[in-house]
């Protein structure tokens, strides 16, 4: 009985890490900043509502947040430490856990690194140049957000699986993509691609090409212009994108699950291991790893808030 009733929350918890990032990308800070005057106005409007209604609305929001955000977090930590601190650290020191942590860090490093480069290039192309097919490219960038992660994973199975498009060739050359690090990295790259580009496009579009043109007319080469003018102007936005990209890369479950093959000590990332351990009734171990992911989420939130403040400041400084 306890298994049945516990399973449902466990999946909610799994999802809880990654989607924090999803939600935020919809409103990058520079857009939010412009909306701010309206928020202030609507706050004043709200005051015209009768007091009880206002209190009710605030209470509802608080209850909702407590039930769906705070409570799961508390449960994660409470379960992780339910057998004491030493059991918690012992669980994390298990070879299986260490391997999962290592793999997660590796995949995150690969996909964040590559998406940083791809994202900057895509945002640069979209915001600074006019070319045919630009709208199509923008739509394409958003594709990973609109597709279910499981489907994203399946695409790679269809491409690289034994019966897949490249499967026979890969097998002939003894190259392992699926059920190995390359496949998991590819799936993660795909799922997290939009974060950096999405954070940068509005910022770069707003900044326009004026400063770059000024740099070039002062004799700067393309690379000098990028590193001395473009990059410093987008650095906070870039960090913001990287941060969210990293949070998602480490927390990704669906797409990675499909291509991982769940080989113990080899292709299990932290989120995958959480599920496996949970299904094996190893609650402390499962929640210990889950607590790491939860901490990642919390740190991400804090850094994100700091970065947003930076971005807003940068925005104000740039206003002329």
């Amino acid at each position: 009985m306890s298994l049945q009733s516990n399973l449902a929350p466990s999946t909610t918890q799994l999802r809880a890490y990654a989607p924090t990032a999803d939600l935020n990308v919809a409103s990058p800070p520079q857009q939010r900043q412009k909306v701010r005057p309206h928020t202030a106005a609507s706050k004043r409007d709200l005051r015209t509502e009768p007091r009880p209604i206002r209190s009710l609305i605030v209470a509802l929001a608080l209850i909702f947040l407590t039930v769906f955000v705070v409570l799961p977090l508390v449960v994660v930590f409470a379960s992780a430490f339910s057998r004491g601190v030493s059991a918690y650290f012992a669980a994390l020191a298990e070879p299986e856990a260490l391997s999962a942590i290592q793999l997660t860090l590796l995949i995150a490093a690969i996909s964040v690194g590559l998406n940083l480069v791809f994202g900057v290039i895509a945002a640069w192309a979209i915001s600074k140049f006019d070319f045919a097919g630009k709208t199509f490219l923008i739509t394409l960038i958003d594709l990973p957000f609109s597709v279910s992660p499981v489907i994203s994973g399946l695409v790679f199975v269809l491409l690289f699986g034994a019966q897949g498009f490249f499967g026979p060739w890969l097998q002939a050359h003894n190259i392992h993509i699926l059920f190995a690090v390359p496949g998991m990295a590819l799936a993660t790259i795909f799922v997290t691609f939009p974060f950096v580009a999405r954070a940068l496009i509005p910022l770069m579009q707003e900044q326009g090409t004026q400063e770059e043109e000024a740099a070039i007319s002062l004799g700067a080469s393309g690379l000098q212009t990028f590193f001395r003018v473009t990059l410093p102007n987008i650095k906070w936005g870039l960090l913001y994108g990287v941060l969210l990209c990293n949070a998602r890369a480490m927390g990704e479950f669906g797409a990675v699950s499909v291509v991982s093959g769940h080989i113990r000590n080899e292709t299990n990332t932290m989120p995958l291991l959480v599920e496996i351990l949970y299904n094996e009734y190893q609650f402390v171990a499962s929640f210990a790893i889950a607590s790491l992911l939860a901490m990642l989420a919390l740190i991400t939130l804090i850094v994100k808030t700091i970065l947003e403040r930076r971005l807003d400041e940068g925005q104000m400084v740039s206003d002329d």
Binding site: E213, V229, D320
Partner: peptide, 11 residues
Amino acid sequence: FVFQHYALFRH
């Protein structure tokens, strides 16, 4: 080139 909208490097 002195631009219509200055285009100074803001950072």
